[in-house]
Design a protein around this nucleic acid. Structure first.
Lengths: 343, 343
DNA sequence: CTGAAAGCGCTAACAA
DNA sequence: TTGTTAGCGCTTTCAG
């Protein structure tokens, strides 16, 4: 690897002159600058980040710590952040946790060891204590998911409201036996969404039946596929189901197709999030569309600004974006029989 | 930030002893090691990568340079690589190019400056000369797309065969007016796929009509949506269309739904790649399923091994994985009228 | 078993 | 306008 020293030797100059020329220092003559630049490009010189960092130069690496990049939420986020970062000369380090706190810790160690400028994180359900400690040492912001222990800077969704709106839509259509498939309550977002579902039912004085609630790992479409099967095999099955995670939505859609369930006449469905393909499914999936791209963009811009001029304090900042219902064909009034029974 | 010096001061030891203790050097007494480790953990010491690299330690960063992470091909790749890398203590640096060679060059500069251990790249149509130069200085492997100038290490698909099989499937059903929507031939994969389409037609002595071919940017579903509209508005429209890129497939599916085309009775469709949602579309999309995950895994494993024990030479290595046709409902024999006309 | 010192590539303070 | 020198945090001789 060619260094400033090599260029200096090549040009019979001192390393400092070369360094200054490359940094475009005013004290260096235009002529020397030209010669240095020429030599640098000829020899294929590329500055050494590690060395610069040792001199106190700020890192330009931002870590993105997420559960799984294959989830449409997260690849959308990765894309938006990557675009913003690139524009500001930051690099994105991708770190998938698969919701394993030990993997999460390993990634944070790595980021800490490379003195990353900052970290954008969608934390695992229960981050390790070490992780909390390391994040204290790095500027960071939470995305979608949040944990009180990880600080008060967060960009995400109004999860409660999303599920509340979804459930209310079904109530408005006359459903009362509404099932919920989503993430468990140990996940902050899982708790919020479940609460939204409950709140909507309470608001209409519809009894909450715990046997209509199926919770499972948010990264597992399989769980949702089995869950919907179980629900429909119950003695008194639900007339509608509302979903609380993208991958669960995918699983349910696959499951319903497999079981040949007629939607919406046999069952109404409201999905979570909107991604390519949801509109193609059966009669079109009614779903809560969520502005993930916008959340990521706001988060990225806010974070960059913070990195570029670090604030004195560490003021809390929270932003919850709201989704909206996209009505398509998968929801309708419940079948008459059931309506009578529940009446 | 706490350094080995801090630990040394804290423990009244020399930096070298601390360094050795942390490196688990045999010459250090177990007792001292314990004390050092204790102090390190108490003070929250995290080793400094930059400093280590200056001492010649190898980087553990691998760059992943791809057009757009939102493409299912690329997020699948990112996921597989990330999983493999994490297991081997490498970190993945995500770099999106949007098929812009200047952005690509910037990313490679960055990776070069941070002395990345290696680069996995799906190059832009026409990489900059600087990019070629920088890649020469870093271990690298090409993924999916390939460019002779970037070396002879490549993992990808048998693109020609994929399109040949897709087209042949339609020919077998009796179609002769088969349109193709795909990427332009300046993209290596685009050329291969177009060639596969041509080859299939030639094999059956079906004339190649250039007005049934619509080429456009592979990252643009919009292009494909418009392209299929144009094709169907032709005086003698095609009876079938075969796609040459995932995003074009998405665009065409949206377009056909919008135009309310009856598939397969009015038009047969063969997609490219298989992703969540393709099976939901209309009668189910017949498509060429491609083992992207496997390609990425092989590539990752091969590359890691190469990074861990660098080979003397730079032997060429190429691997082309083959896809397979997944027949679903979107393909059938052409309507009788057209069959007569073309006979 | 432990310490002192040098040096990786770069920048910045200090000289000239 | 250019050169000399020191030092960032760490590992690694070379000495004790």
């Amino acid at each position: 690897m060619v260094t400033t020293k090599d260029i200096a030797a090549h040009l019979q100059l001192s390393v400092s002159t070369v360094g200054r020329a490359l940094a475009n220092d005013t004290r260096i003559s235009e002529e020397t600058k030209a010669r240095v630049r020429q030599a640098a490009s000829e020899l294929g010189y590329v500055g050494n980040h590690a060395a610069r960092m040792m001199r106190g130069a700020p890192s330009n690496v931002v870590g993105l710590v997420i559960p799984d990049i294959r989830n449409s939420f997260y690849y959308t986020i990765a894309h938006e952040l990557s675009a913003i970062m690139a524009g500001e000369d930051y690099q994105l380090m991708l770190a998938e946790t698969f919701d394993d706190r030990l993997i999460e810790r390993r990634h944070l160690r790595e980021l800490s060891a490379s003195r990353a400028a900052g970290v954008v994180i969608a934390p695992t359900p229960n981050p390790h204590n070490d992780s909390v400690g390391m994040l204290r040492g790095m500027p960071h912001v939470q995305l979608l998911r949040r944990h009180a222990s990880l600080g008060a800077q967060w960009f995400g969704l109004d999860d409660q409201r999303a599920l509340q709106d979804a459930t209310t839509h079904l109530l408005d259509l006359g459903h009362t036996r509404i099932a919920y498939i989503g993430a468990p309550a140990d996940l902050p977002t899982g708790r919020e969404r479940l609460e939204g579902y409950h709140q909507a039912l309470r608001d209409r004085s519809v009894p909450i039946r715990s046997n209509l609630v199926e919770l499972g790992p948010p990264a597992s479409p399989e769980h949702a596929r089995e869950a919907v099967r179980r629900l429909l095999n119950r003695p008194s099955p639900p007339t509608a189901v509302v979903l609380g995670s993208v991958l669960h939505t995918v699983g349910v859609l696959d499951g319903l197709l497999e079981m040949d369930v007629d939607v919406p006449s046999e069952l109404s469905v409201v999905g979570f999030g909107d991604q390519s393909g949801f509109s193609w499914w059966g009669p079109g999936l009614t779903t809560i569309s969520l502005p993930i791209g916008d959340v990521a963009t706001s988060c990225g811009l806010w974070f960059i600004r913070r990195l570029n001029n670090p604030p004195a304090g560490n003021d809390p900042y929270e932003s919850a974006s709201v989704g909206w219902l996209v009505p398509r064909g998968s929801t309708a009034a419940p079948p008459a029989v059931t309506r009578e029974r529940s009446a």
